[in-house]
């Protein structure tokens, strides 16, 4: 694999019993690239994320990250190499203040490995990180119980937890789902900022309009297979994509 590739997914497949959740999916990703993954429900998007981060064991195929094979490593080691993901279902500690929810990420061995990483008082670092993702410091939002925060803040908390790990690759699993337009608009600049910092980002999304606006490249999945791969414009015009989303016309 060449130096310009950060992530390379090669022929990744997963079957659950007789169900083919993912079938020979391959793609690669350059540093600083924002890759969107779209597809109808059940098309294998989240399975793809779970396979890359190895929360689920692939049936066959390999994944390389920074030139290193990672598809045999346990998930926590993959995180330590610099892959951070967010979950579709946010599940914070509802009875703890928001900033305390950051502690687990800040406890990560990844923080100790990074030279020049953020050290020192974890609470202070947590507050800084939360401010970065838009927890207004003057309004003391970070001190509120996570259970009392609206969904938009919880998603941003989830994002801050990933940012805390200072990864080279972010995988955002349906970050925008369940958010209002205004909330999405407030998160987009954070993602843009991550990209400017040279981080690669994979975004699984159902909100196509918002995704097409920021993605460099889009992969379309259907029935566990990759049916299209290209720029937002190419993908939108592709016949295969239209039929996957709208169904084929009966003759």
């Amino acid at each position: 694999m060449s130096d310009t590739q950060l992530l390379k997914v090669d022929n990744l497949s997963k079957s659950f019993g007789g169900v083919r959740a993912l079938h020979h999916v391959s793609f690669d990703l350059k540093p600083g690239e924002l890759l969107g993954v779209i597809g109808p429900n059940g098309s294998g998007k989240t399975t793809l994320v779970n396979l890359i981060t190895r929360f689920v064991k692939p049936t066959s195929g390999t994944v390389w990250f920074k030139g290193k094979k990672i598809s045999h490593l346990p998930p926590y080691k993959i995180v330590r190499l610099g892959v951070a993901r967010t979950f579709q279902m946010v599940k914070p500690f509802y009875n703890l203040p928001a900033f305390k929810n950051m502690i687990i990420s800040l406890y990560s061995p990844r923080m100790k490995q990074l030279a020049g990483g953020r050290y020192g008082d974890r609470d202070a670092v947590a507050l800084d990180l939360l401010e970065e993702v838009g927890f207004e410091r003057d309004a003391h939002v970070a001190y509120k119980l996570a259970g009392a925060l609206p969904q938009g803040y919880l998603k941003r908390l989830e994002l801050a937890k990933a940012i805390a790990l200072e990864p080279d690759l972010f995988i955002l699993d349906e970050l925008f789902s369940g958010l209002s337009l205004a909330e999405v608009a407030s998160i987009v600049p954070i993602i843009e900022k991550m990209r400017i910092a040279g981080k690669a980002i994979i975004m699984i999304e159902h909100r196509l309009k918002e995704l097409f606006r920021i993605a460099d490249r889009v992969i379309v999945m259907n029935y566990g297979e990759k049916i299209a791969d290209g720029t937002s414009k190419d993908v939108m015009e592709s016949e295969a994509v239209k039929s996957a989303y709208l169904g084929t016309e009966a003759d």
Binding site: Y76, I103, I104, Y107, R110, K161, L165
Partner: peptide, 24 residues
């Protein structure tokens, strides 16, 4: 302490603890 919070995190949502690169 923060250590205790990690322990509680394992019972509450172990995937999110793994996701911090911690060997649960």
């Amino acid at each position: 302490s923060d250590y205790g919070l990690v322990l509680k995190g394992i019972s509450d949502n172990d995937r999110s603890v793994i996701n911090a690169g911690i060997n649960i």
